[in-house]
């Protein structure tokens, strides 16, 4: 035991501030940071897929990560195993959606923003169908 330990020093509060901010902002960014484009995409993809399989809004995650030279559009659709459609036809339809996403992603090239960080929980009874489009690198 040292002399100093007799007088316990107050713990710094900054780490707590940092932790609280990180939790709060990751939540707020997913609400406020969601651009109109993302909600439009989500709706259109849902409509396109809805013709063939039953997918709920919650199973589609669209993420737009904008970087200074590169932006990525990440679309994740979770298809329940109980879905009535065979996966092969889903793939065909999804190809269309993918091409659409590609053209959008290309038009976004060069836009800059920060990366928003949030993750989607994947439950074991659903198979993820993931499409990642990376637009051309822009000047």
């Amino acid at each position: 035991m040292t002399l100093f330990s007799l007088f316990p020093r107050r713990q710094g509060s900054a780490p707590r501030a940092r932790e609280r901010l990180q939790i709060l902002l990751s939540h707020e960014r997913s609400i406020c940071g969601k651009s109109d484009l993302i909600s439009v995409l989500q709706e259109e993809i849902l409509t396109a897929l809805g013709k063939h399989i039953i997918v709920s809004q919650d199973h589609i995650t669209i993420r737009l990560d904008r970087g200074p030279t590169l932006s990525t559009l990440d679309i994740e659709v979770l298809i329940p195993h109980s879905s009535p459609m065979p996966v092969s036809s889903v793939d065909r339809d999804f190809g269309k959606t993918l091409r659409m996403a590609h053209s959008i992603a290309e038009s976004l090239g060069g836009m800059a923003s920060r990366t928003s960080r949030y993750c989607t929980p994947v439950s074991p009874d659903v198979a993820p169908l993931r499409a990642k489009c990376t637009p051309r690198e822009s000047g």
């Binding site: 713990q11 710094g12 509060s13 900054a14 780490p15 501030a17 940092r18 901010l21 990180q22 902002l25």
Partner: peptide, 12 residues
């Protein structure tokens, strides 16, 4: 540790 440091703010 009484104030957020520069790295904390930039990181967030």
């Amino acid at each position: 540790g009484e104030m957020l440091n520069i790295e904390d703010v930039l990181d967030i």
